[in-house]
């Protein structure tokens, strides 16, 4: 322990890490050994140990994205042993702990792979495509000031709860990474559902779904084939229901909107 598990023995591990100097460089898997890894460590702390080690040896540390390390900012994004965010269900990489591994294990660590997420360096990827999709319509167009009283728009609790569940997406990109088709539809549908369910989202309901889907397609993500890998690997449990809702929104918007383009 620090806590209660005095039997937890330090582990020695072999890491196979994707190294790639920059976006245009060729990448490759490089093998490292890490020693005396405590089972209480988080996965990223284990990588911290590796990086301190590399720095001391005068080698370049492994670049990876992370920040809050409490599973909410959505920065961390490692493909660990063939799975987005590793083997534990409903968990971001930063909340994955080494007690899920055993002494002597070999762990393969790769970046998210999708053409829409180019590699910055090593394990860090560029997810700005997600931002551009939100910019295409993932908002309610209200300026600051002049909003009516918060209680003027009653929202049934079940609706508010469903909208909240969709809104908890952390935009980590695990859905894209896990999907055979590198499709972003779970991410996109989470935002579309949130706003389609809420009364505040009704005004721009049709244009929103049309524009966001158009941007999603433009970014080069694949199309959903309803496999469900995204939802299975989503660390915050965004449901496939959202994709169905988005499809419905899209079909009805295309059929009834005044947009001739």
């Amino acid at each position: 322990m620090a806590g209660s598990n005095p039997n937890a023995k330090p582990m020695n591990l072999t890491l196979k890490v994707w190294r790639q100097k920059n976006r245009n460089a060729e990448g490759q898997i490089v093998e490292y050994q890490v020693k005396d890894i405590s089972p209480e460590m988080s996965f990223l702390e284990m990588l911290d140990v590796l990086n301190e080690d590399l720095l001391h040896k005068g080698e370049e540390p492994v670049a990876f994205d992370h920040d809050c390390r409490e599973g909410i900012c959505g920065s961390c994004n490692l493909f660990i042993n063939g799975r987005a965010h590793g083997p534990e269900k409903g968990t971001t990489t930063c909340q994955l702990h080494m007690r899920k591994f055993s002494d002597g294990d070999t762990i393969t660590i790769e970046p998210w792979r999708a053409n829409a997420f180019p590699v910055n360096r090593d394990l860090s990827v560029d997810r700005s495509a997600f931002d551009r999709i939100i910019q295409a319509g993932g908002y309610v167009s209200v300026n600051t000031g002049g909003a009516p009283d918060g209680n003027e728009i009653p929202i049934p609790k079940p609706v508010a709860d469903r909208a909240f569940e969709a809104a908890t997406c952390i935009a980590c990109g695990a859905c894209v990474a896990a999907c055979k088709n590198a499709s972003a539809m779970l991410f996109v549908s989470a935002k579309i559902s949130q706003l389609a369910l809420l009364p505040q989202g009704q005004v721009e309901r049709k244009t929103r779904v049309e524009n966001m889907i158009a941007q999603m397609d433009k970014e080069g993500f694949g199309a959903c084939t309803n496999i469900g890998q995204c939802a299975a690997e989503c660390p915050v449990g965004i449901s496939l229901e959202n994709i169905a809702l988005m499809n419905r929104e899209f079909i009805s918007a295309k059929a009834t909107s005044n947009n001739l383009a």
Partner: peptide, 28 residues
Amino acid sequence: TLAVRNRAARSVAYVDSRPSQNSPWYSR
């Protein structure tokens, strides 16, 4: 057409991928 597009969405494949842990083979 969709299959071609989906294949093109990931031109560098994972070195280690274990999709069987998150989905049935026939869906993929």
